[in-house]
Design a protein around this nucleic acid. Sequence first.
DNA 1: TTTATTTATCGTAATATTGCGATAAATAAA
DNA 2: TTTATTTATCGCAATATTACGATAAATAAA
Lengths: 109, 109
Amino acid sequence: MGTTKSNNFTSKQNRKAELFKALGHPARIAIIEFLINQKSCICGDIVEELPLSQSTISQHLKELKDVGIIKGDIEGAKTCYCVDDKVWRELEEISILLMSSYSEKNKCC
Amino acid sequence: MGTTKSNNFTSKQNRKAELFKALGHPARIAIIEFLINQKSCICGDIVEELPLSQSTISQHLKELKDVGIIKGDIEGAKTCYCVDDKVWRELEEISILLMSSYSEKNKCC
DNA sequence: TTTATTTATCGTAATATTGCGATAAATAAA
DNA sequence: TTTATTTATCGCAATATTACGATAAATAAA
């Protein structure tokens, strides 16, 4: 196998996993932090900043784009990447709900 | 390849990615939600609840345990799994910091 | 003691991910 | 037009992940 059995879970569970999975790589964390810190949103600047090849960065950008966390805006020959408000709020809400649903009272061991 | 170049990133970035990656599978989301909802913390009950084999569940539990999100307590022949307070707070803090570091003002496209 | 229950681990197969160089495709500059 | 820049995509190799059955190891029950 190697294939996740996503059919067996709720769409909410699948969505949560999908979003967290997209954050589950140091390069993608670095990309998001770079975009948030507004150093630039130009693809080429990200490539210069990170210690990975252009094609690898492009692939990570695509993964973030596929789940909706960022969006890309073609500006001439360059591409401007940006965090997507709506999906970022979705991620924020999912995280807060999940994190706050646990209370130390309901620990059993 | 297939190997993440974690040497090139900060330890904070690697830790964030590691934690989110652990949450990046629907089965592991389901396991955590099950534990938080306190239906039980017994491994066997998780196996009954989820549509995956015992060995697969055991593997997912190990992954969550390896990053520290849950801990296992052997009680006789059974094992009781539980969210780890300290790591859960770490995850909470990391998430809040990351999510709130983005503001819609600093969007550029 | 013998047998059943419970969970971890091993081995295997299939698929996914990561990373890179090469190349394509498109705009910008000369 | 020709050449340079910029980014996406293809193809490949190496490793990781997911899933399962079989088995081991340990406690519990008979």
